[in-house]
Amino acid sequence: MQSVENRIKEKAAELLTTKKVDLLIGFERGTMPLRASPAFIYDEADIEKLAWNSFCEMNLARYLTRITSKRVGIIAKGCDSRAIAALVVEGQVKREQIMIIGVPCPGMVDRRKIEKEIKGEIDKVEEKKGEIIVKGNNFEKVFKKNNYLYPCCKVCKHGNPSIYDILIGEKVKENSKVDEYAEITEYEKKSPDKRWEFFEKEVSKCIRCYACRQACPMCYCEECFVDSFHPKWVDKSLDFSDIAIWHIMRVYHQTGRCVSCGACERACPMQINLRFLTEKINKDVKVYFNFEAGLDLSVNPPLAAFDIKDREDFIDTC
């Protein structure tokens, strides 16, 4: 990872000095251990800040719809690049204004899982060949990275960027055999009442802070339907039905657009299981329309297209 980080820096320096980009969006080490934050580099002097490690889970595409710079370089993992591609298809990002520095992603580590196992203050974190070594005042603990990956990373099939201009690092071997929707398939087997119980339990936690929406690279509406007054779709209440409608529609609006980056779930302060919603949509999109978001710039997302041969087994009446 060290060498990748250095090459990111070299590339960033080259792009900024040759004025190929005005802004480079990447990652930097966070102020807290086990964390990275987004870095917005306008000046080559700041290049040293750039980092690449197992905590770069944020989807940087999120920022592309919020900046005004004309030419932007961006570090893109598989999911970042997919979100960028989806945003290009939806006209929110101009492909020619974006220099995508693709970085194959071996999966990101869920710091909360590690933190749980550590008592005491962390001084230093090192990474070595699939291991994370956490050092503190009077301890040193080694974590096998693969056991601590985010749920979305565990079943990720698209670690390599789908689109890029420059690729840094070796492509990772993607696990094409993993059934990324196994959990969903399992969940579907439960009785409707049990499913409703779970949905109710999860969604009832929601405090309508909309952090999920803020974190999502695909949520870029000027005004979200949930905030609309005219018409007023959803009341500003904490009535369960209003919260439920918000979550149902939010995930429905992700149809064929969600890139499974897990940003929404990570952002949620109430730790609502949002993946069980997004992955259901992603599964059905794959099953019914053989589509995954952000893989191909030339294909319209499924709700912007149709096929006369589409299945219609949702019709159950007569």
Binding site: C221, E222, A304
Partner: peptide, 21 residues
């Protein structure tokens, strides 16, 4: 126009090509 973000969905699905961005 205040709300619209020009995402092209309407343009793509309009059967009459009545929408442009």
């Amino acid at each position: 126009e205040l709300k619209c973000k020009g995402c092209r969905l309407c343009k793509e699905i309009c059967p009459y090509g009545a929408i442009d961005v």
